[in-house]
């Protein structure tokens, strides 16, 4: 690290042109396979079927069917990110500040890394095997029965009898939480570890109790990190497709599912309207990432030194 300043020293006799040629393959690849397809979609949203400029496609975003899909997606994303953030926060609290046993801490952090990367089709399978009609947990709960005074069997935990359905929004929420809260644990743990002991001591010396310390000192410091993590979780749920597809077979109309159907069979009846739909989604994601990076910068202030 002591030689870092050498970076700025022009040590080689290459022309500037040569220097830039070194990164051409990378930029060319990115341009052809990432920028071009994305721009193409963007432009397609503003063209009619004869390639003339139009704003008419954007109107599809106000189609009741499309509004419904956006609101379903938003609903799932907001619920799972809030549940994930709250649950994940307490878990992260437990393994850092709360000093849970060491083996628990290690297991939870390791499994968080695993579960945060475990999405898609296998996740849907796991939940079907666990909470589906014949799932493992469903079967256990179903067999908890009591005989009441009249001699009738009463099974209060027969969840499907009680109206639970895995192939619904609730089921989707449960499945998404499997990767959402570990994502929160992974993002918030460094921030919780950054809380200085002497902040707490200072608060206690001034007569604060635990609750006051958390409410007036720790939470305001953690707030940017928490909000940042919320946005991250929101984005990961909003863009998810595979789990929903495999779990519900496309019967829940998320935006991603709708786009999938549009690609397969042009359900909107106009390919260019599909591009407008995709554009709407990218805009939501773009706002998310922007907010995330701003909040990260704010959060970094407290983690330094």
């Amino acid at each position: 690290m002591q030689t870092k300043n050498l970076n700025n020293k022009p040590s080689y006799n290459f022309t500037t042109l040569w220097t830039w040629i070194g990164v051409v393959p990378f930029f060319a690849f990115i341009f052809i396979f990432l920028i071009m397809p994305s721009t193409n979609l963007f432009l397609g949203a503003f063209k009619d079927s004869h390639d003339n400029f139009t704003l008419a496609n954007i109107a599809v975003l106000f189609n009741p069917y499309v509004i419904k899909s956006f609101s379903t997606s938003l609903q799932v994303s907001v619920i799972t990110s809030v549940v994930g953030v709250v649950f994940g926060f307490f878990v992260a609290y437990g393994v850092t500040v709360g000093s849970a046993p060491k083996w628990m801490r290690k297991t939870i952090l390791t499994f968080s890394g695993l579960a945060a990367n475990f999405g898609g089709v296998p996740l849907a399978f796991a939940f079907i095997a666990t909470l589906g009609h014949t799932g493992f947990v469903t079967a256990i709960l179903k067999n908890i029965c009591f005989s009441d005074s009249a001699g009738l069997q009463n099974c209060p935990f027969d969840i499907y009898e009680r109206g639970f359905n895995l192939y619904s929004l609730l089921g989707l929420t449960l499945a998404y939480t499997y990767f959402q809260f570990p994502l929160m644990v992974l993002t918030i743990t460094p921030a919780l570890e950054g809380l200085k002991k002497n902040w707490r001591e200072a608060a206690e010396n001034l007569g604060a109790n635990s609750l006051q310390y958390w409410w007036y000192v720790a939470l305001p410091i953690l707030l940017p990190s928490i909000l940042g993590a919320t946005i991250l979780l929101f984005g990961s749920a909003f863009g998810a497709f595979a789990t929903a597809q495999a779990l519900t077979g496309g019967s829940i109309y998320l935006v991603t599912i709708l786009i999938g159907q549009q690609i397969r069979g042009d359900v909107l009846g106009n390919p260019n309207e599909g591009y407008a739909l995709a554009l709407g989604m990218v805009m939501v994601m773009g706002v998310c990432i922007l907010g995330y990076s701003v909040l990260q910068r704010l959060a970094g202030k407290w983690l330094k030194s």
Binding site: A100, A126, L131, G135
Partner: peptide
């Protein structure tokens, strides 16, 4: 105890679906 409660909840969420599967 508060910490252990949430840690156990997390472990349950990890392992129940895994074991169920």
């Amino acid at each position: 105890w508060w910490a252990i409660f949430w840690s156990v909840a997390a472990l349950a969420y990890f392992f129940v679906p895994l074991f169920g599967t």
